[in-house]
């Protein structure tokens, strides 16, 4: 039997599934990577999360994202593994940015491919819902109210927990 194992491993490494990074990402580049040499998957579903200018009625100026290095990657890998068990999906990519971000900046990307659309749609939503409640990231927002600037950590939303719980 020819030894293809190394080639396969290399290809997998090139398609790294998780990236925690300060720098921005290109949606077009990510879609291209999901589609490249992937003739079997007819569906590509992507989600991009961006910084909103308003949270709970407060005018947000910047957002700072802190994370727990090591645990972040481990928890995202677990979520991706669960998604692969539940749905018949091809490639997965999760990008989460850290550090200081401004209004309109991209924060998070989830891309999933599958043969047919249902699996990619469901898996993408599942990954995003679980990321929200189990990946160790924390947002601190700087808000400006009547010229006064204050900083505060965001509170977790029970609606996010409820949404994740729906997957059972």
């Amino acid at each position: 039997m020819p030894d293809n194992s190394e080639i396969i491993m290399t290809n997998r490494n090139e398609r790294q599934e998780i990236s925690i990074q300060q720098q921005d990402f290109s949606l077009a580049d990510e879609v291209a990577l999901l589609e490249q040499n992937n003739p079997t998957d007819g569906a590509v579903v992507t989600f991009t999360g961006r910084v909103r200018n308003n949270n709970n009625g407060n005018s947000v100026t910047t957002l700072t994202l802190e994370h727990y290095p090591g645990m972040t990657e481990k928890s995202l890998a677990k979520i991706i593994a669960q998604a692969k068990e539940r749905w018949n999906i091809g490639r997965v990519k999760v990008i989460h940015r850290i550090g200081e971000l401004s209004i309109g900046d991209q924060i998070v990307f989830v891309g999933v491919t599958s043969k047919h659309r249902q699996d990619a749609f469901a898996a993408n939503e599942f990954i995003m819902d679980y990321l929200k409640v189990s990946a160790p990231f924390w947002k601190k927002e700087r808000i400006n109210n009547d010229g006064k600037t204050t900083e505060s950590w965001l509170d977790a939303k029970s609606t996010d927990t409820d949404k994740a719980d729906l997957w059972g």
Binding site: G49, L65, H67, Y68, M71, H96, I107, V108, M128, L131, K132, V133, S134, A135, P136, F137, W138, K139, W153, L154, D155, A156
Partner: peptide, 10 residues
């Protein structure tokens, strides 16, 4: 061992 508040990423 790590201690932290509920997470707020995404």
């Amino acid at each position: 061992v790590a201690f932290f508040p509920p997470v707020t990423g995404g």
